[in-house]
Structure formats: C-alpha cells, structure tokens
Design a protein around this nucleic acid. Structure first.
Length: 504
RNA sequence: GGCGCAUUCGUCUAGCGGCCCAGGACGCCGCCCUCUCAAGGCGGAGAUCACGGGUUCGAAUCCCGUAUGCGCUACCA
C-alpha cells in the first residue's frame, strides 16, 4: 500500500488536515507500505512563504515520518509539483491528442459574466463548453492572435459516472451536472485536480485518502483516470472536522494551526491520540494508543462517515493524561522551555534543572498543558511569593492567634533534624495536636484537625490556597526557604492591622 | 438554485436484525478519599437512536421519503 499526504503550501494547516495525514500514515504503516509527502504548490498566487517548512515540521512533531518527499527524495520524485510541470503538460497534450481535452480561450471575464448570468436565473453554474466545439480553423485563428488559453477536460455529455467510495460504496453523479474542468491553467501550471490525478498515478499511490470535501470532485477524477486508461486507486473520503458551532474549522473558533498547540503546551502524543479517536474507534472502551499501538490496530474500514466536532475539553483531558504519565526526566525536558518563557525574570536567572524536576513532579497531576507549569510552580522559584495579607489567616483564627501560631511553629520546624516529608508531616501533626485543633467526624469521634494549620503554612509558604501536598511541598522547598517564608509571613501578619476572622 | 454526503446522550463514540426501554469516554453534578487543589474511587443527570412511512415474528441496525447540517458548484485546494 502506498498513501500520500498532499498539502498545498498556502497556509498553516489546522488539526483536521493533520488528522487526514495521520490516517494516511497509519494506513501505510499498518500495511508496511510507504507514506509519501507531496507538496502541491501549483497555486502561485496563494503561496505562503514558510508554510511548506511548517507543514513538515508539524508532521515531524506528531511523529509522522514520510518515506518519500521533497526533502528526502525517493524513486518517484520530484515531490514538488512545481518541478513536475513538463509531466502535466505532456499528459494534457496526450488527452488533447486523443480528443479527451481541448484548449479553451474564454476569458475570466466571460466566465464570470456567464456565472453571474446563471446565478441570476437560478441555473446550475458551470462552463458552457463554448470552446469545445471550435473548428480547427477557429483554433488556429485564436492561436495566431496569441490568445491565452487553458486546457479543459472534455467530460462525457450524457449518462452517469459512478465511482467506488471505500467507505460509502458506489456514488453516482449524473454527467449533466459535471462540466469541463480545467486541467492546465493559462500560466502553464496544472490545477490541483489534474496534478493530483497524474501524480497519484505516476507515484503508484494505491490508496487516496483525502477530505470529504472532494467527494463531489471524485467522479471527475474517475473520468480522467478512465480517459487515460489508468487503474483507479482505492478512494477513501475522511469526514470533516467541524468547529463547536458546526461550522468549518477556523481560527475564530480556537482551531489553531497545529504548531500553535505546541506553543500552548500540548503533547504531540496527546494530539495524535485525540485525532485518532475523532472519527475512528477501535472498540467501545480503548482510549489510549501510542503511535505503535495505533499502527498495530488501525483499520481503515473503521473510519467513520459523519463529520466530527473539535472538542477542546477532550483534547485537554488527553493532554493531562499524557503529562501525568511522563517520567520525571521527560517532564522537565518538555516543560523546560515553558518555564524559561513563563517564569518571572529573577526566577528564570538561576533555574536549576534538578530542583525544577522535583517541583514539576509535585505539580504533575494538575498540569493540563505544559504552559500551565510556570504559573502553578512560580512560587517555588521566586525569592518571596507575593500575596495579600488577608489570605494569611488560619481558619477560625484572628490575626493575633495567626501570628502567634506562626511564631510557635517556626522553632519547631527549625529544630527538625531531617527535612523529609515524613518528618515534616509528623512535626506538623504534633503541632496540630499540641495546639488543640480537633475535628468531630460524622460518626462522632474526634480527630486532629490539620486544616487550619496546614492552610496557614500553605499560604505563608506559597501565597496560594491551592498547592501540592504540604509536607512534600515543604520538603522540596527546603528548610531554609521555608523558614524564611514563615518568618516573612509572621511579620506580614503582625504588620497588618486588619485581622478579622475569615470564614472558609 | 443544482448536485452530493451525513444524521446514536452537549461532545467523541460502541452498535453492522433479537444480547439495547442503547454501552463506554470527555464535560457537568453529587459522594468518598483528603491538609487545599488536583488525581483516584463510587454514583447521578443526560439519547422517544433527526422525523415519517415501510420490510420483518422482531429495526438504532435494511428500504423509501422528509427535515436539518455540511461539502462542492473557482484559471483554490
């Protein structure tokens, strides 16, 4: 099996395009075939500089390696359509010679007027085949006059064309609804439609997997294949990916170019997994697949036929899942650029990789995207966290008691012989009991109530009310830093006049 | 306007004639665990299988029609 991804470098493809690429890649890998990257740069007006590199970068990032392509070459090259112009001309000439194509001299103005006319009369739009009936003399005149022309396919006028859609079965179009499509533009470049057919054949592509938007064009392609006498490839139309409001995916709806998701802290394995399961399912329960697992189980017959909606919340869930199962080293490696970018300057200056690793491990289970990491972990890295003094009130304690509790706790912790989570927990618990914090459980029994003291220390040390577990956090923070922050909190509390009770 | 494709909980889906008065997952809600937030565990709400006709002893599953959505209708891809 040979499949191909054939993007045109006219922009930065979104997630839906890459899902098609994923399916193409999986189909090839599953069958131990080849996956070809062919760049369809035939529209010179819409060419976007850099987009070809971005497209390839996106594929690489997802882990979809191609066997043949513009950069790596291959036996069917070149893989840039702009370098294959002679091939298209040669094949167009062949069709002209055998009467299946003709030169059309109609101007774009005439075509536009024709279309406007048809629309005004609510008629089906389409080329009226004016030039198809030109006599040899008339053609010679036009050529002599130097009129520019395009090459059009002479489509069958009557009957119907049926092609086999791998997922949907036979699809039939009345030939009267199909006009004579342009094969070669006046600038000598082929249209996508034509270059596609010629290249898929010349490159021995066995399975054409493409977006659903080409269903309507498929019968035209079939006609051309048949005019050439070529065997038609298996044609698989993958359903579209829609925005949450069911409209076509666009930036407005948060469907960004793939590489933007990298910047937002998404993992390629999460994106690939998410994409796989948008329009495809292995069974009714399996959710997670590595690329290798996908290859092993991928079955193109299970590709769905209904459009799917891009659900960011689901992507987030996949991403969080994959972040959670990263090893500590992978976690720092991947989060590192985000820390460098997102942390305040002073914290960034002397970032220690080992310390960062321990911090990230604490936050691993609450990081949704890598871009969350700096905000979640910032307090570990700054000299002193900023926070409002009003946060610094033990539950059910007034300012005086809070300050006093902090004052009492500092020497307790300072005297600890070891600074490990177990020892810290024991010390904190002892402090809770000594201070008489008691909670009555539902069954009436009384147990030590860690809440007030733990929260107080949590805020003092982090400036936040949501953090990793306290003993673990203090252990990573280190004795010196912890005591310094507790001291600062004590002063902060003492200095603050507002000391009313806070309800939590 | 014409042509085409699609249609199962808000979303992704399982289902390919009886196992389904429809199962799983995301999201949402509640409970548990618990030093907070997460994670995890348990539970819940949520789909007259778009609608209407058939076929059949029996239909989410097959057929026809309708509606709706989307796509194509470019010297774009």
């Amino acid at each position: 099996m040979r499949t191909r991804y054939a993007p045109s470098p006219t922009g930065f493809p979104h997630i839906g395009n890459y899902r098609t690429a994923l399916f193409e890649w999986l189909a090839a890998r599953h069958s131990s075939g080849q996956f070809v990257l062919r760049v369809e740069d035939t529209d010179r007006k819409r060419l976007v500089p850099g987009s070809m590199e971005a497209i390839m970068e996106g594929l690489r990032w997802l882990g979809l390696a191609w066997d043949e392509g513009p950069d790596v070459g291959g036996p069917y090259g070149p893989y840039l359509q702009s370098e294959r112009l002679a091939l298209y001309k040669e094949h167009a000439d062949k069709l002209i010679a055998q009467g299946d194509a003709y030169r059309c001299y109609c101007t774009e103005e005439r075509l536009a007027a024709l279309r406007a006319e048809q629309e005004a009369h609510k008629q089906p739009t389409g080329y009226d085949r004016l030039c198809r009936g030109l006599t040899p003399n008339e053609r010679a005149e036009r050529e002599a006059a130097g009129l520019s022309s395009v090459v059009r396919f002479a489509a069958p006028l009557e009957g119907a064309t049926t092609y086999h859609d791998f997922l949907r079965g036979d699809i039939t179009f009345d030939n009267r609804t199909i006009d004579d499509m342009i094969l070669l533009k006046s600038d000598g470049f082929p249209t996508y439609n034509f270059a596609n057919i010629v290249d898929d054949h010349l490159m021995d592509i066995t399975h054409v997997i493409r977006g659903e938007e080409y269903i309507s064009s498929a019968p035209r392609y079939a006609q051309v294949y048949r005019a050439f006498g070529w065997e038609e490839p298996v044609v698989v139309h993958v359903p579209l990916v829609l925005a949450p409001d069911r409209s076509k995916l666009s930036k407005r709806h948060g469907a960004l170019p793939l590489l933007e998701y990298r910047e937002l802290g998404y993992l390629p394995e999460a994106i690939a997994n998410f994409l796989l399961l948008l329009g495809w399912a292995y069974d009714d329960k399996t959710e997670f697949f590595t690329l290798d697992e996908m290859i092993a189980v991928f079955d193109d017959r299970r590709i769905g036929t209904a459009p799917g909606i891009f659900d960011r919340a689901r992507l987030d869930w996949f991403n969080a899942h994959y972040i959670r199962r990263l090893s500590p080293d992978e976690l720092v490696d991947r989060a590192w650029p985000f820390l460098l970018r997102g942390l305040p300057e002073d914290a960034r200056a002397n970032l220690d990789r080992d310390y960062a690793k321990r911090v990230l491990m604490l936050d691993q289970e609450r990081i949704k995207t890598l871009a969350d990491a700096p905000a979640l972990a910032e307090f570990f890295f700054v000299d002193q966290p900023e926070y409002d003094a009003s946060l610094l009130l033990g539950k059910g304690m007034d300012a005086a008691r809070t300050a006093e509790a902090l004052a009492a706790l500092i020497p307790t912790l300072a005297d600890l012989p070891t600074w490990e989570p177990e020892a810290l927990l024991a010390a904190l618990d002892a402090f809770v009991v000594a201070r008489g914090f008691i909670r009555t459980k539902a069954d009436g029994s009384e147990v030590p109530d860690r809440g007030p003291v733990f929260m107080l220390v949590r805020v003092a040390v982090s400036g936040r009310k949501e953090t990793p577990g306290l003993p673990e956090m203090l252990a990573v923070l280190g004795k010196e830093r912890t005591l310094k922050r507790l001291e600062a909190a004590r002063h902060k509390r003492a200095a603050s006049q507002v000391g009313t009770e806070v309800e939590r």
